[in-house]
Design a protein around this nucleic acid. Structure first.
Lengths: 242, 242
DNA sequence: CGACTCCTTGAATGCGGTCAACAGTTGTGG
DNA sequence: CCACAACTGTTGACCGCATTCAAGGAGTCG
């Protein structure tokens, strides 16, 4: 399933990566980032639908998304699934596993993707040399908490309409941060996955997309989305950001 | 509001605390636990309603609940509040703040309570001497993730009935672990707080309590609850544990 | 005792879910 | 290249769960 790639000296590394400032090295001085090249010795290529890791597995690494996108989901004893996040390039998957050596979520590729591998045992070693890395890992864990709290807030106190609007704005923001258009993008996940993530049915998501389109807030054709009226969406979402 | 208490040599410490095996020292050998006494030099006494810390504040410590109970909640820019957890004795509050030096939630006492203070700057120092502590902190962070994921699952895919049943079972389990009765206890929070936590209105919570009582699954009088039929509640909850 | 908060219960409404049919898209193999 | 199958998304009709609004009761504290 997964395809491992060892990085030859001249292949891309943290220190020369385009996503440098969005990913693990965020805010680290260049001299430190070079030391990260020692941690990230490997990449994995995933086909759409491949598992990067599975809930319950031993956690061996944390992963930075280099291209493509990934969803995380938890599964209970009865097999019911709840999507807990959609991850974009530059974002880190597996922080929760890092903390207890056991993955608490599944991570599945939404499309063909490539992820960089930072093995936990290597990091243990490197944190002794680069104390900033420890701070970095904390910060990433904190990000993860904020993401999850936002999801809880959305599920706990927003209406379906607000959730869908907030979801679109959130995607918009994150894509914009990566340098993509904030008003025109392709959703990599199905209506069902969006619905599951937002605690709604796929029909409700579809209906709201259609209604937003009818009201000229967005344009939709399949997974291609165009946001026509950001202020109105923000107003609808009932939150001040995604 | 808060009342600080410095611990005199003969007052209770981690190494002699009754909650020893439920709290920060969980699973640590006695010799290590003694080193924790160095970290936990202070306790705070809270009156009902007092804030242990507030969202946005600088995080200076993590806190172990010694007696009483605490709720955590996030607040958005418009002042809307979402309760994210109810914490019992032995449980740790503030892990998320520890990770970024900024509190991402409010923590409020549900009743008169006492919490032990482990200052972050002290812990930095102690982790150099007691490497196990670092592992401990990771484990606690992971616990926090699991708690939150469970809440997301509950909000995302359970019905009101299932959520309330699961909530009661969860309280039951955690109280039982502390040595209290698993079938008879007093809820420290209002219907409104439960409702907010579960993404329901207070009326829905009240109605479901009444219905469970009518069906002889529980007995309720105000905040005093008695679970009469655990298997049936488990069945209802649609999950295999709280 | 009165004022307050918290809880319960009823009645009516409506949001989102369910079930079902169909359309559009993608992928596959002949 | 087309035909067919499988998947994904849209839309409609109906239903029911949970919310909303409202009134009244129970417990608590000054």
């Amino acid at each position: 399933m997964q395809k491992r790639i060892s990085l030859t000296p001249d292949s891309t590394r943290c220190s020369t990566c385009m996503l440098n400032s969005f990913c693990l090295p965020i805010g680290m001085p260049p001299t430190q980032v070079q030391k990260l090249d020692e941690v990230v010795q490997e990449r994995i290529r995933l086909r759409k639908g491949d598992a990067l890791f599975r809930q319950g597995e031993e956690a061996r690494a944390i992963y930075g998304i280099r291209s493509g996108s990934v969803k995380t989901q938890v599964e209970d004893a009865r097999g019911q699934v709840q999507v807990t996040g959609f991850l974009l390039p530059g974002e880190i998957v597996g922080m929760d596993g890092y903390l207890n050596n056991t993955q608490v979520t599944h991570a599945l590729a939404l499309e063909d993707s490539e992820v960089c591998v930072a093995r936990i045992e290597d990091m243990e070693r490197i944190t002794r040399l680069v104390p900033e890395l420890r701070q970095q890992l904390r910060r990433l864990t904190n990000e993860e908490f904020k993401r999850t709290h936002q999801l809880v807030r959305s599920l706990g106190l927003l209406t379906a309409e607000q959730r869908v609007a907030a979801f679109l704005l959130n995607m918009s923001q994150r894509l914009a941060a990566l340098g993509y258009s904030s008003t025109e993008f392709v959703l990599r996940m199905s209506r069902e996955e969006i619905g599951n993530y937002l605690g709604l049915t796929l029909e409700t998501v579809s209906r709201l997309f259609s209604r937003f389109a009818r009201e000229n807030l967005i344009r939709v054709q399949q997974r291609r989305v165009q946001l026509l009226d950001l202020p109105a969406l923000r107003e609808l979402s009932g939150t001040d950001c995604g």
